[in-house]
């Protein structure tokens, strides 16, 4: 096996709730290969979202290592992490998290505003990303003028517009009907197949997880493959 894109070693995350200490992640060790579509499953509170957040560089572990493309994200400071996320990770949320006052195209363009690309280059990449998710004709629509499934596809376009190697999705179908969920999952699957993206998806829906190339389960902060 080639060098994994994500290398997790002895990753532990503790929360203190008042006097009680909760172990969200208990010495997790995990490798994720480039081009995988990994489904992270587990019941609520199993720590799957926490794991995803640490891999994506929005949360920090209590101890352990998390190397993404050779970079230990646990060692980066706030600003470095912000830049790193912008360049290396595409994020898809359960609640889509589009900016309501911006059009679909403007939402997709947001991550590109932090790059050195010119206006025309940005426009071009936005157009391409929206075409990939099949929403080129909705570019000028505001989020509230789109269906849930369309909103999530705009979010996918936003996640892939910077061409990151890694795309993380936190319950991407949790707020969608089964038809829209199907669309979104197919779009993610296509990203892996056609563009070779590595995708990590948190879900508790076995049907959604079936779209992945590998499924792993978390239970009380521990892996149970």
């Amino acid at each position: 096996m080639a060098e994994p894109i994500v290398k997790i070693r002895e990753l532990t995350k503790l929360y203190s709730q008042g006097e009680i200490q909760v172990t969200a992640l208990d010495r997790i060790t995990l490798d994720i290969a480039a081009g995988e579509f990994l489904a992270l499953m587990g019941p609520s509170g199993s720590g799957k979202s926490t794991l995803l957040h640490i891999i994506a560089g929005v949360d920090r572990p209590t101890s352990g290592q998390c190397l993404v493309q050779g970079v230990d994200v646990t060692k980066l400071n706030e600003s470095q992490l912000a830049d790193w996320r912008n360049q290396n990770v595409g994020f898809i949320f359960q609640t889509f998290n589009l900016i309501p006052v911006l059009t679909a195209a403007e939402n997709v363009e947001l991550p590109l505003l932090l790059t050195r690309l010119s206006r025309t280059q940005r426009r071009k990449q936005v157009e391409t990303a929206l075409e990939v998710v099949g929403l080129a004709d909705r570019a000028k629509h505001l989020p509230r003028q789109l269906s849930g499934g369309q909103e999530q596809r705009v979010a996918i376009a936003r996640a892939l517009v910077t061409d990151p190697a890694l795309i993380v999705a936190d319950e991407p179908t949790g707020n969608l009907d089964s038809h829209s969920a199907q669309e979104v999952l197919s779009a993610l699957q296509a990203l892996r197949k056609d563009a070779g993206k590595t995708i990590i998806m948190v879900t508790h829906d076995p049907k959604a997880a079936a779209f992945g190339t590998r499924q792993i389960h978390l239970e009380k902060g521990e892996l149970s493959q």
Partner: peptide, 14 residues
């Protein structure tokens, strides 16, 4: 608040 969180995730700085 969530919008701010989203912007931060996308890489916008404090």
């Amino acid at each position: 608040t969530r919008e701010i969180g989203t912007l931060r995730v996308l890489g916008f700085r404090r």
